[in-house]
Amino acid sequence: MTINVKTTSRSSGYASKIMLPLACLGLSTAAQALELDVGDSEVSIYGFAQLDAAYTDGPDMYAASGFTPFFDIRPRDVEGSDGDFDMGAYTSRIGLLSATPTKNGPIRVVIEGDFHENGGPGFRLRHAYGEWNGILAGQTWTNFSGFVGLTKTIDFTGPVGRPNPGRLAQIRYTLNGFSAALEDPDGFSVGEGILSGTSGVNQSRVPNFTLRYTQSVDAFTYEFGGLGREVGYEVSNEDDYAFGWGINASASYRFGTGIKLRGAVAHGDGIGGYLFFNPGGAGYVKADGKVETIKATSATTGISIPAGTGAFNLSYAMVQADMDDTAELNPAPPNIYGYDRYDSVFLNYIWSPIEPISYGIEVGHHRAEQPSGESNDITRLQGMVRYTF
């Protein structure tokens, strides 16, 4: 076996395809990568080192974890700390991708991780999958939604109020912009599960089924997604299940001046964590032991305006769950203050003085509301430095 080592640009080819979601959510990823020829396979090692720093005018909220601080927003009548500053490098990332030619098409493999386990610094698997002739198997972004309608943020988790492009174990088939997948029904940790006063566990007997179609017409790109799933629980000798569903639509348009508009909407009943930071769960258990699914709706919109060596990005996002019938549950909904709606506004400037280096500054304003209409908000100032290889 022969191993040849060289450096090459990731600005084209399969590596560019893999790194595109990083560019959509944050910063430039075009840089020199370490590339090895291992037998017939072309292997690239990529990643970045990143420092995050943030000040939040409320309770402890760690920049290293990157979580949008909705769980830390207190109602106005609850006392707490007045502010917190934090720095961390846990979003730094390393990955490996390979392409091996065969007479029936290339086999592509991606393995990627960061140091964000439980907010850091434990190593966490992000992607681990293989792909051949349109068949993908492993863990990667859910097939329910992509990145078409998302505006760049420095906040690691990005805007709420969007179809969640989180990473799930799955098997997927893709052909001409259309894809279908069977996905892990228990893969999301936020906005998921059954709300119940019992000690039962969430349970699904079948995988989630997702569909997606993505297409571009000149400067216009659009995407549609659908979800079908089972929502259920089991405790002692008691269990029950219900059907959940979700739909989403996203679009973006780039003007000749470089200005780009984006937007996405989603809705579902029992959709759970497929809506990012859904303040409710997928469903709850009624007094008679039956599962009732929870409706939720989300929306996000944004604009990117080129300026100098970077761009200004302004975006708004919201997500709301129908929690009217869950007020008497014990424990309460999966946030300590029983919120049913979150709103966010982000304004940032992200720029690259030279290709492998990116800087960013951002202000984010976040609001949480209870079913009664009581609300409070929090503001976060954040900065970032990224060195890409």
Results as ranks from 00 to 15, higher is better:
residue 223 E to P: 09
residue 229 R to E: 10
residue 244 G to H: 06
residue 254 R to W: 06
residue 282 A to S: 15
residue 303 I to M: 09
residue 290 K to F: 08
residue 273 G to C: 11
residue 210 T to W: 01
residue 246 G to K: 02
residue 235 V to E: 11
residue 246 G to Q: 08
residue 265 V to A: 15
residue 299 A to K: 04
residue 305 I to Y: 03
residue 295 K to C: 01
residue 323 M to H: 09
residue 274 Y to P: 06
residue 249 A to T: 10
residue 312 F to D: 01
residue 197 G to C: 04
residue 275 L to E: 13
residue 315 S to T: 09
residue 323 M to I: 14
residue 220 F to L: 15
residue 322 D to Q: 05
residue 201 V to R: 13
residue 278 N to G: 12
residue 303 I to N: 00
residue 326 T to Y: 04
residue 198 T to I: 05
residue 281 G to I: 09
residue 215 Q to L: 07
residue 213 Y to G: 00
residue 275 L to W: 10
residue 235 V to T: 12
residue 314 L to C: 02
residue 288 D to L: 03
residue 206 V to L: 12
residue 242 A to N: 11
residue 229 R to S: 07
residue 283 G to C: 08
residue 280 G to P: 07
residue 273 G to W: 13
residue 242 A to G: 06
residue 238 E to K: 08
residue 273 G to R: 02
residue 218 D to K: 05
residue 250 S to G: 11
residue 244 G to N: 07
residue 315 S to R: 00
residue 282 A to H: 06
residue 296 A to T: 09
residue 202 N to I: 02
residue 262 R to T: 15
residue 314 L to D: 05
residue 311 A to G: 03
residue 297 T to E: 08
residue 205 R to H: 10
residue 330 N to L: 11
residue 220 F to C: 04
residue 294 I to A: 02
residue 213 Y to K: 07
residue 293 T to E: 04
residue 240 D to Y: 07
residue 293 T to P: 00
residue 234 E to F: 11
residue 286 K to I: 06
residue 316 Y to D: 07
residue 285 V to F: 04
residue 272 G to M: 06
residue 248 N to H: 14
residue 212 R to F: 07
residue 244 G to K: 00
residue 227 L to F: 10
residue 266 A to P: 05
residue 253 Y to C: 02
residue 253 Y to A: 03
residue 302 G to D: 02
residue 263 G to W: 11
residue 250 S to L: 12
residue 232 G to I: 08
residue 212 R to P: 01
residue 267 H to M: 11
residue 269 D to F: 13
residue 279 P to L: 09
residue 258 G to L: 06
residue 215 Q to H: 15
residue 229 R to H: 10
residue 299 A to E: 05
residue 227 L to P: 04
residue 276 F to G: 09
residue 241 Y to S: 10
residue 212 R to I: 02
residue 232 G to S: 07
residue 209 F to A: 15
residue 288 D to V: 06
residue 285 V to P: 00
residue 288 D to T: 08
residue 245 W to C: 05
